[in-house]
Amino acid sequence: MLDELFERLEKQDRLALARLLTLVAREEQLDVIRSRAGKRPEKTRVVAITGNAGVGKSTLVGKLAEYLRSQGQSVAILACDPQSPLTGGALLGDRVRMPSRPDDPGIYIRSVAAASGHQAVAEHVDVMIRVLGRYGFDVVLLETVGAGQGDTAVSELADVVVLLVQPESGDELQWEKAGLLEVADVVVVHKADLAGADRTEGQVKELLSLPGCRKIAVLRVSSTKGEGFEALWQAVLESPRHAAAADEDARELLRRAQEILAERFHRQGDRVGNVIDRWKRQELDEAQAADELLQLLAR
């Protein structure tokens, strides 16, 4: 089945694309899809849009997608919404604020449910991005659930992280506490048509001018008025792509090695228990026991 799906994906079959993403979300044949999809092509730029709930992420993503379409770029949107930890259910409503262009093949919107506790994006978004890259999208916009404090996983997935803040959303201390400014490459003061936007912009700039801060672009965008998108995209293009994204393969390799290790450990179940028992009975000292465990794993 995967052969056929990937064959269709090469021919830009949207239904095959949609099905592959479903398989990824369901963790079906995840490793096979990951390797078949291959490395994300250089041309596919991944931009994460993050920020607190209500700051306007979906709206901005929608408008940014329209801007990119007007520039001839094909765009895929992965819109993450939270999933109930109790039932696994999810209400995925980001599409409400996104463009509806049924006749435009250059835009693809997919809602994904993010399990709570798994940072700010859905699981296996890295594999979804690979599949979207394989399909050939120029840009992938990754909308987070609404970042909380210390949500940094996005910076490993995306080339550029855009953090949205809005006017009147707390004093300077809030910014620092959020720790998000550490991962942001571009900070957008969204809803710039509202009063107080210039003050918020000033506060963010002041914070970022403290010694030791990276150079981060700060700019104002109004989705209501459709202003600031050209400048925003320019800032994204000028922002250096994360080394982390390029290191994805190395991380992948390590992850795979860890899995193999875990599998071997599991396979040696009884023998592992045996070594531990002997160590408990003090027939082995710690160094000897560790040594025996390693020998088991090497088999």
Binding site: Q83, S84, T87, G88, G89, A90, L91, L92, G93, R95, V96, R97, S100, P102, D103, S111, A113
Partner: peptide
Amino acid sequence: RDAGFHVIYPGLWQAPE
């Protein structure tokens, strides 16, 4: 949603396409 489904709601006034 409460029963565990993933519900996608695209909003009002949708064209069939």
